[in-house]
Design a protein around this nucleic acid. Structure first.
Lengths: 225, 225
DNA sequence: CATCCCCAGATTGTATGCAATTGATGGGAC
DNA sequence: GTCCCATCAATTGCATACAATCTGGGGATG
């Protein structure tokens, strides 16, 4: 059965990649689970060739682990991975945000709109956390794209998608969520003012607050570096 | 003709990957050149399947550009890419070096040996720049591995191999080379002292000095951020 | 009873054939 | 002379068949 019967023509590998990726990030495929090429090919409705291509791509991104002649299994992440990722983010994102303030390349209209839409989604009852996550990702990406360093965007993106498995925003307290939303507006203001140090500081607060929120949910000690 | 006839059994894709990668980094494949699956398969002596796999892997690493239904071509880098890369390195490597000083996980004996061997290679006439490059890469990797953040190693590695096309050390003046070698010893001393700020500062000096050396060779203005 | 060996099943790795897409070429209309 | 479109060669994308490798179990052997 083809899961995307609408426009599955011409891009079997792409469809396969997106399908497996979505299943992993949604938690449908548990960490440690083996992904057999044959099974996936049968379920998705393509041959093993595009499946192999999709799996190698996922392996390059770090979502699955490839063991030669054995197969690939879904990477199972722990709190240590979360620490590594947020440690990196709290270094790279503030720096990129400061660069964006210096260059003045940021699309302030877009960022304002994204921040407002996150506010709106958060006011719904219940809030659509997936929608907020999507908007949040676009916000952070837009900020980094304004840094003028294209590789920075790629590096952070490659590292950011892993914590999506944790359903980041679902762990936020009401206060933490409000503060996070306020941070977004403050970031835009700092960028508008062209104040690199302000922008860098707010983004650092923003990322580290998120880090603490996630760690508290897992009953661990506060972050070190 | 099989280029690695010694032990090419069992891993056609790996051999293909290493072969093409080496050709790109050695400059044997010029930037912008199209890499046809059929040609590569015939030259290396394998079928198109492992060639496709190798090319996708290289594309994931950013060494080649993949255009759907058209093929892949060798990425052609410019001075802007060099700026992006060293801008990132001057942010990530000092930070990682400071972390390494704090953790105390660094293998000081290995680092001492690598620094000494770089000195020895530099004293040869003429110096073996490829050997120095290899030792230098191992040195920097060992430092970052001691940071305790595995993803940091991967991120920097993915970004560092591109400038290899430029034959980094061949552009160093005698003074710049001597200073670079001295930096390595100073980094080890800072790590031995467990002084994170010292370690971070030296590594920052080390990276930014390299940046300036490379830019001067290309007749450009000094780096900004 | 523990150990080793070997075989069978399952799974990945590679080769090959065919379909689909792209870009160029050449002829013809205006 | 220029533009447009049909056709074709070249190349990638996908499917399938075959070879190589790994895992687990059963039985002989000490």
């Amino acid at each position: 059965m083809t899961q995307d019967a609408g426009s599955d023509v011409g891009k079997a590998a792409e469809v396969t990649y997106l399908t497996i990726r979505r299943q992993i990030l949604s938690g449908e495929r548990a960490g440690g689970e083996w992904l057999r090429e044959g099974d996936l090919a049968a379920v998705i409705g393509v041959s093993r060739t595009p499946v192999r291509e999709a799996l190698r791509r996922l392996a390059a991104e770090g979502l699955v682990r490839h063991e030669p002649n054995r197969g690939v299994q879904v990477e199972d992440w722990g709190v240590d991975d979360l620490d590594e990722i947020f440690s990196l983010r709290s270094q790279l994102e503030p720096w990129g945000c400061g660069l964006a303030a210096a260059t003045g390349l940021a699309d302030l209209v877009l960022l304002d709109e994204l921040a407002d839409r996150m506010d709106a989604e958060a006011r719904r009852d219940p809030p659509d956390l997936d929608a907020i996550t999507e908007l949040n990702n676009r916000f952070h990406r837009a900020v980094l794209e304004a840094s003028g360093n294209g590789r920075l965007v790629g590096l952070v993106s490659s590292v950011v998608e892993v914590p999506l498995v944790w359903r980041t925003f679902s762990h936020y307290s009401r206060e933490a969520m409000q503060r996070s939303l306020a941070h977004h507006h403050e970031i835009v203001d700092a960028l508008r003012a062209g104040d690199a140090q302000w922008a860098e500081s707010v983004m650092r607060s923003h990322v580290r607050a998120a880090w603490v929120s996630l760690r508290e949910e897992h009953g661990d000690s506060p972050p070190g570096s």
